[in-house]
Design a protein around this nucleic acid. Structure first.
Lengths: 153, 153
DNA sequence: CAATCCATGCGACTCAGTTGCAACTGCTGC
DNA sequence: GCAGCAGTTGCAACTGAGTCGCATGGATTG
């Protein structure tokens, strides 16, 4: 066992608590902890990432992690991303910059083929111009760019 | 049990055989049968779709279906699509129209939220304009449009 | 503080996809 | 046409993500 730093999510606990209070729903430990995790991460986190991060100070059952993550999506606080490895990843919805993007069901992500990390491209919202066959009605557009991230050139 | 029509993939067996012969690799029953299935379908097929289609006349072990589908991808004959339901779907690479698209690792698909069918939009190749953070190198772009297909309005 | 109701934890389960291994089969050379 | 080899198949067992049902426990309301 090696010494580990204080996990970064701890400093986001107050913000998480505030956000959950704002929903009017129940304020529970797991919800606060999981949300703090997402707030602390700039990248998309899988249920495993979250569970691992919480393990030391806020151990939460994996089923609860699943349920809280889903709940956060339903509350519009985060969104879920389907990757290549059949694992859902979750990410806080950005506040200002691209609330519009999220509102329009338009997402863009970058997934690194090397480190498997998923990044959000909603800031630089890519332009997409789709032509659909007759009768098809779109409701959401997801853009997935694969490649190498800056750390994995 | 109900009477069922002759499965549509049967008429694609010769074409499938020819295509596999063209690879120079081994010509086997499962490869021919699975490829014929993909040729017969205008939409993306899951391993289960394929297995079910073959069940009556060319029963193939599900593991073999997986392996053949993967082999077809490696041969550049088909490509794989990740859907929302954590299931891989497979589709023949189009010949003329958008060989360029496929070659550039640029795919576009439409998935119906109602019937779960996946359609290929490579014909009408959507325009995408992405700006990546510094140091990020893209290798492939996948576009996924969700919505209702013409049959499910 | 008690009552209520919803969230949590736990165990068991489903389902896609993978792995190891023994048996088989398509191809090659004779 | 047949033997031998290597690649392929089928089977059984496994992994890992995600789900479900149910009993317990904790957060809110009065």
């Amino acid at each position: 066992m090696h010494l580990r730093m204080k996990p970064a999510y701890l400093s986001h606990l107050p913000a998480a608590e505030a956000a959950i209070r704002a929903t009017g729903e129940r304020l529970t430990q797991p919800r606060v902890a999981v949300l703090a995790c997402l707030l602390a991460s700039e990248r998309a986190s899988s249920h495993l990432d979250v569970a691992a991060m919480l393990a030391d100070h806020h151990a939460v059952d994996r089923v609860t992690v699943y349920r809280v993550l889903e709940w956060l999506v339903n509350q519009g606080i985060s969104h879920r991303i389907a990757g290549d490895d059949r694992v859902w990843r979750f990410m806080i919805n950005p506040q200002q910059t691209s609330a519009k993007a999220v509102a329009h069901g338009h997402h863009a992500h970058f997934v690194c083929e090397a480190c498997r990390q998923t990044f959000c491209l909603d800031e630089t919202l890519p332009k997409v111009d789709v032509k659909l066959p007759k009768g098809f009605r779109p409701s959401e557009i997801d853009l997935l760019v694969r490649g190498r991230c800056a750390d994995c050139v």
